[in-house]
Design a protein around this nucleic acid. Structure first.
Lengths: 224, 224
DNA sequence: CTGTATCCGTGTTGATACTG
DNA sequence: CAGTATCAACACGGATACAG
């Protein structure tokens, strides 16, 4: 593993691709954007990513100071992977990628990890839609809890306690996604997603993340 | 080419990678950011990219409405490739990638294409450094000419006429890069880069593109 | 001259099974 | 749970030959 294939290009964007352009590198990073994760957490969030490839990507990302591995103190004593400060600064990159690709005519809905969902809120949040709204919204997806605090036209979303939230969404994150981005009413998803607390606020919350308009599909017709 | 390997992930950033995450896809797009290019233009700007891979990338980018191929009217009658409107909107992506990777401790200087250089100016331009400066700067790199117009703390850079510029840089773009980002004085590069016009303005211009600070290299020591 | 198609050696990727 | 080993498939890059 002496040297890997690299663009030999002085362009900084090309260098970025040398660092994080390998297949699966960015999805793996994404899973660490909201805090440290274990090997198996990442694997579970990325079906299709095999163990050997994950090992290799984590090694490579660690070798270029984007990821750090850390051993939690006893009694946990488990090893976790986390982004370095610089690695965390790649968040803007995910946002720009996401906003650009949200206009793609080829995008198909699909399952998202809890981290993806929270990141999409950070990405698509509309200050205009929020106006003067002030609210704390909680989420529980299996064992993980997250919260979004909206105040003064800003959103702060991440892992957190849901004890004091005004609305709690509890269940399958994919159901919430169908509501957020697919316009499915919460009532139609009641079996997969429980909503407790201020229901009017919950509905208002769901309007804060408008999707940009999709661009036209320019493909001529049928090409083989 | 029935179906290619894709992340099956509802995350929009992952979809972006499905569209433009293949090796060479973004460098190829980059070469079209300043306007239509011919097949051989792109090849010449990207040493290491072989013809068959370029063909394949152009086909794939065309198939997802990022690239359009167009036949120039006679007497030129040559085929050119250009970004669609949506493809052009990926510029922000290159800028964010570039700004992030500019902090990499592993970045090594290397040759850049003329397009890369102009894009780096758009990316790294500092309105603070420019202040109230108003100037037109021209560039000639072989057969291609570009210009940068600076006014009111903004830069507009791209292909253009150099007839009326206050300063003209003429020669090897890599020499200009050494000056811009390597701090090499223009005098030391006189054999590779001719500077005509207002020399004081030229020196001022070279200070408008500050690089961000490099992050620490966290690698433990020697790993195989 | 400008691409496009084919062949081939090589390295990367990915799925399965296996080990500490 | 956290990876390693093995092997098959594919992608890349170079060369060359071909088509408009």
């Amino acid at each position: 593993m002496l040297r890997k294939r690299a663009y030999s290009d002085g362009c900084a964007a090309a260098h970025a691709l040398d660092l994080i352009g390998d297949r699966w590198a960015m999805p793996v990073m994404r899973e660490m954007l909201l805090g440290p994760r274990r090997f198996s957490d990442i694997r579970a969030a990325l079906p299709g990513l095999s163990a050997n490839v994950l090992t290799q990507r984590l090694e490579e990302l660690e070798a270029v100071s984007i990821v750090q591995r850390r051993k939690l103190p006893p009694p946990a004593s488990v090893q976790v992977y986390e982004l370095t400060q610089w690695g965390l600064e790649s968040e803007e990159l995910f946002k720009v990628l996401g906003r650009w690709a949200a206009r793609s005519p080829y995008k198909e809905p699909g399952p998202m990890s809890p981290v993806s969902l929270i990141m999409s809120m950070r990405t698509m949040f509309s200050p205009e839609r929020a106006g003067a709204m002030k609210a704390a919204i909680g989420f529980r997806f299996g064992p993980e809890t997250f919260r979004a605090d909206i105040n003064k036209g800003e959103i702060s979303a991440g892992r957190g306690d849901v004890a004091d939230v005004a609305v709690l969404f509890d269940g399958d994150q994919n159901a919430l996604i169908e509501s957020l981005y697919g316009g499915v009413p919460l009532d139609a998803l009641a079996d997969r997603l429980q909503v407790t607390g201020d229901r009017a606020l919950a509905d208002k919350f769901l309007t804060l993340f408008p999707l940009p308009s999709v661009v036209p599909d320019l493909r001529p017709s049928i090409s083989d």
